[in-house]
Design a protein around this nucleic acid. Structure first.
Lengths: 204, 204
DNA sequence: CGTGAGTTTGACCAGTTGGTCAAATCAAGG
DNA sequence: CCTTGATTTGACCAACTGGTCAAACTCACG
């Protein structure tokens, strides 16, 4: 285990390689389905060498998750109370969709955990996420009360955005099989834009 | 292994108990994360006894999946070309939502597999599901061309319905945490009805 | 109540897995 | 070049896992 000092060049490189490899392996086999050996090999290290940098399989997972969750919620944090409501929401949808395209492994890693009841995530969800969701749901409610977007259950609206955008990452295997040659991400932005525009444009 | 004759009373009872237990265990830990012992205990049997009824862990899983997929696609099959397009689609959405409420474990089992790249499902998806989706996507296209519902990418429309409805089962842990006391299924039907009505009602 | 098929189990096995450890190797500053 | 701390590794361990097997038990039926 590296000492408490500033990390050496090698430490930085190897820890990064391990986390990258772990993302790959964990996101495609889940926590239980992944082995330390798999991760080590993917990172180009031997198993004991990997365990020299991280004390345990779970430590790798936790560090990965902690780093992930922060960036995962950034798009929602960026929802601006001062902006034009419909534009803000549509932009949020596109940002989220973009993340599914650019970081599908992160999305699947998160999905894997939640589907299995979030045994290693309950605390974080109950704390950080809950606060953020309450805040943004209230913002949506204010916009609706002011007649600037159509009425809809604010939390269900947020759920639907997560669901629709992450679907393209989480169910990638299914989506690609059914779309054949067509790239799902060609039509998805247009489809979601239309959906939420029709859904939310105020009917005077 | 029971002989090839008609199953005895005990065989029927135990095989059913095993499949029920397996659904529970597989859906909350995934295939790799589940152990035969867990399933056996949940079914009230010893491990060797369980393996007397099924030749292997994978055999249990396969039988479970085969039985599941059929009923899973029934709601889509029921989409009636002769019906009123908007009503048909809205009814499909509600049927699918109902399944998420009544059979969340089945939904999660399926989700678990797809998220991990569907290693044990590729064939089925490529065959049965693909045919059904092509057929129904074409039906949607006909309805759109006739101006009976708004235009939208037919396959993305189907994906969105799956995504939004299954979300309540697959991400149950997250949804319930964020909804607090409120039952997600109270407002979900209304929310989805509104969403698809606004989205699809033809703008003359 | 006896008997043969159907059912159950304890003991066991080989392969895998997370993790340890002492010894070997390497890298950088003096 | 040599020392010292950082890095790497082969050998190893205990726990777990999927699966086997022969022996024991139970049940329905004549």
């Amino acid at each position: 285990m590296p000492a408490d000092r500033a990390p050496t060049r090698i430490q930085r490189k190897n820890r990064a390689a391990i986390l990258e490899a772990a993302l790959d392996v964990f996101s495609s086999h889940g926590f239980r389905g992944s082995t330390v050996d798999q991760i080590a090999k993917a990172a180009g290290l031997s198993k004991p060498n990997l365990l020299y940098y991280f004390p345990s399989k779970e430590a790798i997972f936790n560090e990965l998750m902690a780093g992930l969750l922060d960036t995962w919620l950034d798009p929602l944090r960026a929802l601006d109370p001062e902006g034009e409501p419909l534009d803000e929401i549509l932009a949020y949808v596109q940002r989220k969709l973009q993340m599914s395209r650019d970081f599908p492994r992160e999305s699947r890693l998160y999905a894997n955990e939640i589907v299995q009841g979030a045994p290693r995530l309950h605390d974080v969800i109950a704390a950080d996420l809950n606060v953020l969701v309450e805040e943004k749901a209230q913002l949506l409610q204010v916009w609706m009360d002011a007649g600037r977007i159509n009425r809809a259950h604010p939390k269900h609206l947020l759920f639907s955005i997560w669901s629709l955008t992450q679907h393209y990452a989480d169910f990638d295997a299914q989506v690609r099989t059914l779309m054949g040659d067509e790239d799902p991400f060609d039509a998805a932005p247009q489809y979601l834009e239309t959906l939420y525009r029709r859904m939310l444009t105020p009917i005077s």
